[in-house]
Design a protein around this nucleic acid. Structure first.
Lengths: 165, 165
DNA sequence: TAGAGATATTTCAAACTCAAAATATTTATG
DNA sequence: CATAAATATTTTGAGTTTGAAATATCTCTA
């Protein structure tokens, strides 16, 4: 049996399961905890202040960034939720008059979803309030820590990038 | 035009608020992105490998840490989900034979939920696999960054601790 | 001790979510 | 051109989630 350097593969693996992997698990549980807590706070504020929901806000936000509209598939990919999920939320937003579905030239399967004027106006106002809520909920987060947080989280999300495309 | 922003006191507050609050918003969106991505991966693995779901796993995990069982209200508080939500998940886990509801002495309103032997056994096995999945998904996260992440996230969750109690 | 208020849990309706199946349409292949 | 495969979306059924209302029980106080 061929054992080499002090940090050899076998020991490293064992340490990893007992130490590093536990640290990573703790990190994940902490991410989950914060994200649930913040989501809960924002959901409540959305409901009380806007009479709306987080998923609807997310859809509006995505479409506000893409003013020419997006296909349903682009929308669901960008929000990382299923296609069928987006269908229902868009349906409700359309019936509220905030979105429209526009047929796509040369492809009758697809449709583009876009903000209406009312949707644009509504979202523009709400986005500012939303940003203020988040800033308040994160008020103990310094600029330095915000950057550190983003950097670390990016290393995680890059590793889990969809392998295709 | 010769403007020096850092010397402009009137603008400083506005700039600071706007920059810092945007950084915090970006941090929040990144948390959301990672947590959705990881949750999606774990959900799929749970479904395929265990034929189960994330919420069920979360309930089992909470009860595995409290071997004497928890009240429904403690459970929902610990998982940060509504009471009614836990009822449904516990119902299913009871019907799968992994949990039991035990009446509470001197309080017929309440009941204690506990793992059955089967539930304990099942979870113990699955927890190891789950930890390995997380460690793999977080494999770009060094011990140092894991600690940094946890520290930063704790400052956020402490600020948003429930004010009551 | 009667009954008002508090507490623990469940039930309920609506919304969200997923994965898989169904539908409609387009593209590619023979 | 016919039609098989691919693509875009919706529908479906089951599960999760919420917030509010309902139910059951307990506690406190007059």
């Amino acid at each position: 049996m061929n054992m080499n350097h002090s940090d050899d593969q076998r020991d490293q693996m064992d340490n990893e399961t007992s130490d590093l992997s536990k640290a990573r698990l703790r990190a994940w549980l902490q991410i989950l905890k914060v994200s649930r807590k913040i989501e809960g706070e924002l959901r409540e504020k959305m409901r009380i202040e806007f009479g709306s929901t987080l998923p609807r806000f997310d859809v509006l936000a995505a479409l506000y960034r893409e003013r020419d509209g997006m296909r349903m598939s682009e929308l669901s990919k960008s929000l990382m939720v299923s296609n069928g999920n987006v269908t229902g939320i868009v349906d409700r937003l359309v019936s509220e008059g905030l979105l429209v579905r526009v047929p796509v030239e040369n492809d009758r399967r697809a449709s583009i979803v876009r903000l209406t004027e009312a949707g644009e106006k509504d979202f523009a106002e709400r986005a500012l309030v939303h940003e203020a809520w988040v800033s308040e909920l994160f008020s103990d987060l310094s600029a330095r820590d915000a950057d550190g947080l983003i950097r670390i989280l990016r290393t995680i999300s890059h590793h889990n990038e969809a392998p295709h495309d």
